[in-house]
Design a protein around this nucleic acid. Structure first.
Lengths: 218, 218
DNA sequence: TGTACATCAGTGAACGCGCGTTCACTGATGTAC
DNA sequence: TGTACATCAGTGAACGCGCGTTCACTGATGTAC
């Protein structure tokens, strides 16, 4: 990733390169060691260049977070498109989420870190709500067609929290595997079981493919 | 928390005070702004004092993480003790976990951050494995008594990831609540439903109180 | 086609700051006799 | 009980470092005429 050649004075698309370099830094040095100067070094430009485009550290990280939410929305909506059954759609979204987590760990490390990002940024908020909205609307569909007792907002958060937990703990699991002497497992497969659990949990302890008569309930 | 009086030359239990101050800093400034000097300032001692007791930043944060795992073990094992049924015990542990997350967010922010902590530290590893072991052994009990098909190691991680996700996203949810104009919800109640989902998912789609004949397994 | 000028994109030297670390020190406590 | 000494706990001045930010600058591109 590191560009060592001096390169032309005018860079093709420096903002893009800087975002990529920022992700690079996050992934292999961690957010703690993140700095504009390190990003500039990796992008092969002067240390003042990131400031020119993004203002400050917060601005650059916010741009990375926005990119992350856009990727998340793109991946999950693609995964969901064309899937008729809302339950299957939810599973597809869950898998898509985890895929993003696995493929873009740098973005994910920033997306929910309001202490590090400009949480008031309008683009960031709309990108985040757009991704969240897809999840929530799918659960609303499930509620409508399968179980009207579901608290949609709350269920959406359960799903989000669970999948996010999976993504966040992936690194820890990997380390635990080493400590415990176990081999690492297929994360996406785990995600499938995850979403399966969520769905079964949402539909109640005895899910059926056809809704049964459950009218007498508190 | 901040001590402004000069205080006596010899502090009663400075290591303890420094750990508390460290948690303080993490909670309201974030790990990004964490520094030994800031911790010393809050503890009301010279900036060299933390170095004397903990060596460096990593050492202090490792001590905080150990404290966190010890608290986690204490809380979950207390919650689990005396509960006969392993399923109920797992639920109690899940609730205990979330309680720790809610009450000790500073510790939790550090416990799984290997980039910031000395992951090779023997005390840290044993404290972590002790907490994890309680969870795993409970799931092993469930597997034994209810469903031998459960992959115990993997199920334990699912649980851990889910509850951890809940804890980590709590702050995000709070912020989303503001964005979406909703009131915040009872986190521990959410945890109960969480663990319920896990348990039902683990026991399969049609859980029974008595184990059925399943002897033919690979 | 050529020239002058404006604007954009990135440079690099300079600055002040907070940090971690070191180190000679000092104040307090414990111990030997 | 008193004195000398060792050890422990914390100090504070000093240092070098990487950082973010500023700012006059320069190289490249676009536009007007």
């Amino acid at each position: 990733m590191t560009v060592s050649t001096p390169g032309p004075y005018h860079h093709g698309d420096l903002p893009h390169t800087l975002r990529a370099a920022a992700v690079d830094v996050i992934v292999d040095k961690g957010l703690g060691a993140f700095s504009l100067r390190e990003v500039a070094r990796r992008a092969g430009v002067s240390h003042a260049a990131p400031g020119y485009h993004f203002g400050d550290v917060r601005g650059l990280l916010t741009a990375v977070a926005i990119e992350g939410f856009e990727t998340l929305y793109a991946e999950t909506s693609t995964a969901a498109s064309g899937v008729e059954d809302p339950v299957e759609r939810l599973e597809a979204i869950g898998r898509g989420y985890v895929r993003v987590g696995v493929r873009h760990p740098g973005h994910c490390e920033v997306m929910f870190r309001d202490d590090v990002v400009d949480a008031d940024d309008a683009h960031l908020q709309s990108a985040g709500l757009r991704a969240y909205g897809l999840l929530e609307s799918t659960i609303a569909d499930i509620a409508e067609s399968r179980n009207p007792d579901i608290d949609v907002t709350d269920a959406a958060r359960l799903c989000w929290a669970m999948v996010q937990g999976l993504v966040q703990l992936r690194a820890k699991f990997t380390q635990l595997d080493e400590v415990l002497g176990l081999t690492s497992v297929d994360v996406e497969d785990r995600a499938a079981r995850f979403t399966g659990l969520i769905v079964h949990g949402l539909l109640g302890p005895t899910p059926r493919s056809e809704p049964r008569d459950r009218s007498s309930r508190s």
